[in-house]
């Protein structure tokens, strides 16, 4: 399995300077359609292992800006706090990533260093750093990203599978629907109108999930339907091969391989369809 951590080069970790003050420049927005403003807060790093979330927690308890104005607490999403649920994704210093694994010691090792936080730009902002990623779940439904089992009654085990096949599927299956790959994708654009989702680019996450389910013995049954959807507008051919997705994916999912594999599958599917009708 691919296991290198690119985000946090271990040996470069500077020692924690406790008591240092770090500035957070945060893009705020009260709700959909409202204008965005920036607030800057100072946070004293008084614990080791501080990350963006723990600092946001500190700000939430007492949200006073550097100018001394009391503001509303910043709104953001989080869950597992160990980079496995995908909730806390945001744009930190211009790049998309999870805020729970964004360590302050890496981002702002010295007194007075500044960190900027923005919501993802490819999804509608709910409030402050929280965005609505429903479109990603919608896309999973659009591609029927499930195994069509006959029901939950006891019918024996699933198909046998080679360890190699399992490893490939496992790697794809660790996708936590965080949206990093979509945020960084130049072909994936903000679309607030849900009725257009079915014809807008699905993005690497969903393409890769389609590949995952097409690989499964039973999941294969729906492959033609998935491939049909992926041939339509917003399907796999809308990818422009910039390969940003694979570089920002926190789970190191081989997204560009998925895109190519699905490209091959739709090619063959189209040929089959042409000759079979």
């Amino acid at each position: 399995m691919i296991a290198t951590i690119s985000a946090n080069p271990t040996h470069a970790t500077p020692p924690t300077k406790l008591g240092r003050k770090v500035r957070f420049r945060i893009k705020r927005c009260e709700g959909p359609g409202k204008p965005s403003t920036w607030n800057t807060y100072t946070v004293t790093i008084d614990q080791k292992g501080a990350n963006v979330i723990s600092c946001l927690q500190q700000i939430a308890a007492n949200p006073v800006t550097v100018e001394g104005t009391r503001t509303t607490p910043v709104v953001w999403d989080s869950g597992c706090l160990e980079e496995v649920c995908g909730a806390c994704t945001m744009v930190i210093n211009g790049k998309v990533r999870q805020s729970c694994s964004a360590l302050i010691d890496h981002l702002a090792p010295n007194e007075g260093d500044e960190i900027s936080l923005e919501p993802m730009s490819k999804f509608p902002v709910i409030r402050d750093l929280s965005v609505d990623r429903q479109r990603m779940f919608h896309n999973l439904a659009r591609l029927k990203a499930w195994v069509p089992i006959d029901g939950t009654y006891a019918l024996g085990g699933g198909p046998k599978e080679s360890p190699e096949a399992q490893e490939t599927r496992y790697a794809l299956s660790t996708c936590m629907t965080c949206g990093c790959c979509l945020e960084a994708c130049p072909q994936f654009n903000l679309e607030t109108d849900a009725s257009k989702w079915d014809s807008s680019f699905v993005g690497a996450q969903a393409i890769s999930q389609a590949r995952l389910f097409n690989m499964h013995e039973t999941g294969k049954e729906l492959a033609p339907a998935r491939l049909d959807a992926l041939m339509g507008p917003g399907g796999v051919s809308d990818c422009g091969n910039s390969q940003n997705c694979v570089k920002v994916c926190p789970k190191h999912i081989p997204l560009t391989e998925s895109i190519a594999a699905v490209g091959r599958a739709v090619t063959l599917h189209a040929i089959t369809k042409f000759f079979r009708g």
Partner: peptide, 15 residues
């Protein structure tokens, strides 16, 4: 952008 029933047009055009 049309509804995704327009296969094979979209796919064919891109290919």
């Amino acid at each position: 952008a049309t509804k995704h029933t327009d296969f094979p047009n979209h796919f064919l055009l891109r290919r």
